[in-house]
Amino acid sequence: MQIRQRLTEYARGMGFAAAALAVLLTMQSGAAAQEEDQEEAPRWVTLGDDYMPEYSRRGADECMRCHGDEDSAHLNAVFEGPHGVMADERTPFGGNQCEACHGPGGDHTGRIGFGEARPPMPAFGPNSPWSEERENQVCQDCHKEQKHGFWEGGTHQRQDVGCADCHDSHVRRDPMTVASTQSETCVGCHTEQRAQLHQAYSHPIRQGEMACSDCHQPHGAPNEAMLSSPTINQNCYECHAEKRGPFLFEHAPVAEDCTNCHKPHGSNNPAMLTRRAPLLCQQCHSRVGHAGIGRSPNDLPSGNPSPFLLSGSCTSCHSQVHGSNHPSGSILNR
């Protein structure tokens, strides 16, 4: 590729990014102007994570005086879900009720003077002062299972993702626990993957048959790409065990890494391949005989239709690309 062409395309990419940034900054300046006349910050803002008022006097009964009406019906769905089980001492309603997660609510439920702003709950509410890290700690105080033990140092933790960014605790069934709804949350941030899932060949995620967590462990697994299994190939073999072997005649790149040839989030090529055969194969195979011959449009049906190009191309003969257990299968065609 010509250097000039590359530079031009880099410049275009940078230009796009700069333009987008400029647009955002322009919009930001408007928003910032509206915020110039801010009053002096109240104490819960200045205290941040150290904001720790007293607990309320009567717990959830006090909360329900204001949040028990129809407008709060979406909040009260917590009583239909696993967090609202009083008989389970591990859950919020087996203990400090609303304040188990939202923090002590003495200030929020206490009396306020005329014209005063009502202090927020410390966590998980409008204007709550606790940081995302502190809020995450609230969740982790109870959710200590193994998969959550990897959170510290994981990619999501390092990128300041909060538990509440993905999970909804005020519902009977958290959408993150259902295959058909989970991906909507994930692709909210992973926009490229959302686009790839719509490509012609992809795993059945957009159809709701697979969840992102079938392959990934989003709470910070210490392996590559936070996969559910320790390695990429083990992850793939979970569903494609027939590819595992060991075979008599192996195809080394297959045993090494499935993503050498496949794009797991989607592709425009059948079988989610990175490229079309024969070019896919010719990236690695050039030898005496037919393997290295460059196939041209003369090999199309309009010319001299060639099996080396059309339909399955190389795999029309070498169909055992994942390995062969045939004693005569050294070239993966038996």
Binding site: R58, M64, R65, G68, E80, G84, F93, N96, P104
Partner: peptide, 25 residues
């Protein structure tokens, strides 16, 4: 530490909580 006194849970009866038993969904 600025941790508050633990609440007296004997007064936290949750009388107004719309607890759900039986079928939902």
């Amino acid at each position: 530490s600025n941790a508050p006194e633990p609440p007296d849970l004997s007064r936290w009866q949750c009388w107004n909580c719309p607890l759900v038993y039986g079928w939902r969904g």
